[in-house]
Design a protein around this nucleic acid. Sequence first.
DNA 1: TTATTAAAGTTGTTCCTACAAGTCTGTTCC
DNA 2: GGAACAGACTTGTAGGAACAACTTTAATAA
Lengths: 248, 248
Amino acid sequence: MIETESKPKYEKAYRTILDRLKSGRYQIGMRMPTEGELAGQFGISRVTIRRALDMLVKDGYVESRQGSGYRVLTLSPASDTCLTSFTDAMLRAGHEPTTRLVSLTTLPLGAKDLALLPPDLQREPVMRVTRLRAVDGVPRMVVNTFVPARLMPDAGPADFPEKGTDQSILRILGRRFGLEWSAACEDISPFVADAAVAALIGVSSGSALLRQACTAFAEDGSLVFYEDVYRTGSVSFNLSRQGRSTKA
Amino acid sequence: MIETESKPKYEKAYRTILDRLKSGRYQIGMRMPTEGELAGQFGISRVTIRRALDMLVKDGYVESRQGSGYRVLTLSPASDTCLTSFTDAMLRAGHEPTTRLVSLTTLPLGAKDLALLPPDLQREPVMRVTRLRAVDGVPRMVVNTFVPARLMPDAGPADFPEKGTDQSILRILGRRFGLEWSAACEDISPFVADAAVAALIGVSSGSALLRQACTAFAEDGSLVFYEDVYRTGSVSFNLSRQGRSTKA
DNA sequence: TTATTAAAGTTGTTCCTACAAGTCTGTTCC
DNA sequence: GGAACAGACTTGTAGGAACAACTTTAATAA
């Protein structure tokens, strides 16, 4: 990423520490270098490194204890949203996720299917990626991902790996197509499996499933992708209360 | 709250500004006082007031633009979790929420129903509050709230208002019983309505509903309450991407 | 060998200062 | 009247410093 030079120092520090964390350089539970040490390593002030560390705490990767130091909590916080990688979550839990690309279709302007999408996606051709996700061989969810076709030029089946960490749609959109997003809204509702979804997932028609509809936006507010997921099981979240309280 | 003296200055500023915001002193869309003005009003430094404002931004209440100032986005960010008040959301949307207290029961140690609760709630008597929530007269959800009985001494039906803002369980637990919590985990799954829930909500048995199970914790990690919600419709979230990017 | 205490180390809070970068307002000129 | 520019104002980033509060470590005494 050539643009790292334009990022503030605390942002670069945040990313670098996060990379170290995710690469295993800091193990879960182990104490991280102190604020002073990190400030020295990055050549920045303690105030600036604290901003980066504060973000890591807020994002759930590390915990801090006054007088004791920072420890790694997790390499990937557990929240089951469209912005967290299902692939990574399954791999971390010792399962084997796989993906089957069911279809890759460009929906032209005026296509009937466009009518069901958010309005922002109805003004231009849209790429629809339909995939069946499975865990340890057992189908778990049908995922339809819609992206403005202009953001995924020359997309083909080879762009959608079916094994390993690269099968994550977040990683595909980010690395292969260079897309970035910073916010999303998600809607979860009960869904009675119709014949098509039931056949894909391997449940009987009429089964109760969950439907997750998620719209992700770029910093400038433009829509990056829309995802429609039909899944068995449940989704889980870690939440923090608004109007927080201080540690006793 | 007598303990405000022990909170850091940035925390007090955060709460005061949030109170002003929620009380309507700052209207949605209007520009708030500048950092310098607020620092002066609170008698603290610009750095400290920025910490409070930063929290308000992160929590979704205000937005800031360099050179332009801070504006109020919302008086209550829209996310449909057990930590956000359904009552407040409905009132804000111009609907009339009401609540019927179905039962208020103390489950003693060893009670069969305790077996289905989180382990932390199985070690002591638990208060179970069952309520039916409705919007504009239409039943929407059945809510079972479980709290260690010792945290709700002398609880009675009079403690659970059925109209207005005070019907919010978050407000009841907070104000009437002085409970505080700072984190929660929530799990959403599909639920096929059994006869009891179906009768309460007014749907046919076998209907697909959503089940929200939520466990809230205090700062010290102890369990404050557990909530089990069966609801029609959907839940929605606002999410921010982890590993954020800087504004262009 | 164990317990206590002091010192050292670490995070948390707060302040002041300086400057960068963006926005807004007012004035001047065409 | 509109455009351009300058100045003022505002937020954003960064550093250094000081001290509070908590934890850890080492030394000393019993």
